[in-house]
Write a protein that binds this DNA or RNA. Sequence first.
RNA 1: CGGGGUGUGGCGUAGCUGGCUAACGCACGUGCUUUGGGAGCACGAGAUCGCGGGUUCGAAUCCCGCCGCCCCGACCA
Length: 572
Amino acid sequence: MRLSKLFFTTLRDDPSEAEMASHRLLLRAGYVRQLGSGIYSLLPLGFRVAKRIEQVIREEIDRIGGQEMEMPVVHPAELWKESGRWYKVGPQLVRFRDRAERDMVLALTHEEVVADLLRDIVRSYRQLPVIVYHFQTKFRDEPRSRGGLIRVREFVMKDSYSCDRDFAGLDAAYEKHYEAYSRIFERLSLRAIPVGADVGMMGGTGAHEFMVLNPAGEDTLVLCEACGYAANQQIAAVGKPVPVAEEALPVEEIETPDTTTIDSLAAFLGLGRDRTAKATFFVTGDGRFVVAIVRGDYDVNETKLVNAIGATGDLRPAQLEEIRAHGMEPGYGSPIGARDAVVVVDDLVARSPNLVAGANRPGWHLRNVNVGRDFSPDVVVDIANAREGDPCPECGGSVILRNGIEVGNIFKLGTDYTSALGATYLGEDGERHPIVMGSYGIGVGRVLACIVEDHRDEKGIVWPPAVAPYAAHLVAIGAGRDAAVAEAAERLYAAACAAGPEHEILYDDRDESPGVKLTDAELLGMPTILTVSPRSLAAGGVEVRVRATGATSIKSLELVASEMGWSIGPQD
RNA sequence: CGGGGUGUGGCGUAGCUGGCUAACGCACGUGCUUUGGGAGCACGAGAUCGCGGGUUCGAAUCCCGCCGCCCCGACCA
């Protein structure tokens, strides 16, 4: 592709809106443009990268037996009503009506459509297992998009769906995807860490997320450098300290003015935060009021809390008046005297004697509170967030906390969708069984941005060869004055073109100054920069620069061509 | 949805305590010169100052409303 014809432009100045490095570079180098909040166009260069990423994914999903197809973006709401998601999912799901006033949705994912196709097509166990997948646009009306392509509202996702006779089949499909994903991210030069993840309310039996470490990541990962343990903080079950045994002492009410936070309380009493019990208050989607108690030196983990009480739907923080209505005092709260509340206590709190807890009276706390004696929890289970330095559940070493961006996920769905939609097959036993599904996603645009995050320098993007839009960037310097330069550059370009589409290169034939061309070449980030100039010809041919290392050498046109896999024609 | 910003040619900005004809750098067009690290000179084109009201003799500038975008938080199948 001749740069003089390419639909793009580079920017000298950083766009003021772009905070993340990948976003800034992709805008400046002319790979993407923003249309609205969380809505982007991929310009020809960006589109080529996306297609190369897709091709890597396609090859690996094909390799585990995936069959590529395509499902629609717009769905009749009926399907989503059947699965229940029409009612469960909030405003993230875009709903609208067509001209006949039929409810429609923009797809968040395609489980419903797959289940619908299964009930149409699959009759017998002989037709299973099957894996189908597609690359398709999703629209999720996120309340807040950010970070350029990292978190958007409209995006292309590779989503595959495994369809099996039973859970053993699902386990096998899941394992295949796990391995395929590992190969995909390796080929894409992305260091994606598989972490155990929450299965959520889908009732599935297992889930992993593939995470790329990045300070801007919105998930917190719990990692052990000693043994490789990795989990999303949502589910990480780390070790907890063993409290020193003490006799349970009598409860004592003490005045503690202006101590609505654990820090202020601990400071006022001159105690460690680990001698306090922290109460937080939530309301479940089905209207239950929940008091969660963790020790003062921990934070509540809402995912664990949701799982502990089997809440369907969301948990939201309780309002002050709701807390009082259940017999507790915000800032000075404890379950002692609580009414109509589900009391969930962290296991460590249950083992810790003589804690300071709220007296449910402004300005007062209670000393020597002991779980079981002073109040009775409904549930005792781990509901605390792992902290940096906590013991690794696998090896006992210290865990670290890092932020991660989720680039892929694999999920054992089970039979929720197929049961809801009646997607069954007739088994060998002559009985009808629901088909067992798994779903597996990779966000193409997010992967693209994450690659740039990890493969760049102060001059621009440094594409890994596997995803670079073009293998090389040919720069002709002084072609306007020197016929030999023009001829050599054209000859190289013709050789690349003749070698087939997969050998196509970028050819900067613009009438620009050398500085502009070289700066743009580094900004755009092709793996190899070939420079033809009077100087290079005098030195024996073409200057070959490896973008990643900056190493340069002079090679003859013929050698360059053979190394790039082209056959070069004779000199005119 | 809360908090904080911001909106002026394609990009980055100045002007914003009310006053000339809206300014500057880059980019863009034409011509000449230049040519291995974001060239120089000359001429030129390009802006309903986010939108709608209001105050005023006069509004980019002040007031009200709305919208867009960015960041932090809440949220996130």
